[in-house]
């Protein structure tokens, strides 16, 4: 979640700048953060909130005109000097980590100097170095709070999965789609869930998650055994003409989207372009006609017009090689 938020914030900047180079660099920065340094990503997300308190206009002003590196640099400065990960490293007794953090900061300062001198490429390299150093430093000092949060979320997600699959299994069993010598050991399953809940009550989230995962896996196995080599057919039918009309309307919209997509890839002066544009206009007429039928309560006629229109649109879509 936090990682995603970080990305959203950064991408909004990217869009403001509308600058490919910056998006690439920030993108790489983000992926470094997300992949190797999730701790930092969440820190940055929290810290970065402060950057966004200014009005959108302020925000734009403060970004436009600044270089790519200084954008990145600002973010790294925050992480290096004012984040929970640095606090954690500093308050730990891990000399190795502390030394690495110092090195990372040194590298950052060198980068800032290079940036002032206008040597962007060199500055960027130093920034990357500092990130790498911090990443290594952080890996020496784990964050127990973060581990706990992750495990708690994992437990909650597994709980949701459990409920979903339990319901699916029961439904399938009742509908007799399942072989009766069910592979599911209900008592064992029940015990596992009780155990997982107990672990959760004692705030032992990692055990809670592990136990719940075992329960979910039992259900997954049972479902895959029960449904093995089966085919479930979802038939196509509607209860009312109104439902069918609504359905055809959605279909119509999706075809228009497809055709517009085809148009985007066609030469404007080509015959096919004109043909598609033509049919799209005719479709507007068909929709208007169908609408008239609806207002006068002739649902069957409305449906028939729309269906005919959709068939024509589809024919056109298919004839365009889709």
């Amino acid at each position: 979640m936090l990682i995603k938020r970080l990305q959203q914030m950064l991408t909004s900047k990217i869009l403001d700048l509308n600058n490919n180079a910056s998006s690439t660099i920030v993108g790489v920065l983000i992926s470094t953060l997300c992949f190797h340094l999730p701790v930092l990503a969440s820190d940055a997300a929290v810290k970065n909130k402060n950057l966004n308190v200014n009005s959108p206009q302020d925000k734009q002003d403060s970004i436009i005109g600044t270089s790519v590196s200084s954008n990145k640099s600002e973010l790294i400065e925050k992480i290096l000097y004012n984040s929970s990960v640095t606090k954690r490293i500093e308050s730990s007794e891990n000399e190795k980590a502390i030394a690495l953090l110092e090195e990372a900061r040194k590298s950052y300062l060198e980068s800032a100097k290079l940036l002032e001198e206008g040597r962007k490429d060199a500055a960027d390299k130093k920034l990357d170095d500092s990130l790498r150093l911090l990443q290594t430093a952080s890996s020496y000092v784990t964050d127990p709070n973060r581990e706990e949060t992750i495990m708690r979320q994992r437990y909650e997600q597994l709980g949701e999965m459990f409920v979903t699959f339990r319901e699916a299994y029961d439904r399938i069993e009742i509908s007799n789609d399942i072989d009766t010598d069910s592979s599911l050991d209900n008592e064992h399953l029940h015990n596992l869930v009780a155990q997982a809940n107990e672990f959760e009550r004692n705030k032992n989230y990692s055990q809670a998650a592990a136990t719940m995962e075992e329960a979910v896996n039992l259900l997954k196995m049972a479902l895959s055994t029960a449904l093995d080599k089966k085919t479930i057919i979802h038939e196509f039918r509607f209860d009312t003409v109104e439902d069918e009309y609504r359905y055809e309307m959605e279909v119509n919209q999706s075809y228009i989207k497809l055709l517009k997509f085809i148009l985007d890839n066609l030469d404007r002066s080509s015959d096919r372009y004109a043909l598609i544009e033509n049919l799209l206009q005719r479709n507007d007429q068909i929709l208007a006609e169908a609408n008239l039928h609806v207002t006068s309560g002739e649902m069957k006629s409305a449906l028939a017009s729309l269906e005919q229109g959709n068939i024509e649109l589809m024919r056109l879509i298919r004839s365009n090689g889709i």
Binding site: L227, D228, E235
Partner: peptide, 16 residues
Amino acid sequence: PVVMDLNIVREVKGSM
């Protein structure tokens, strides 16, 4: 992975 061999067929209106 837990591999599950279940096919879901969704019928489509018309000739598609």
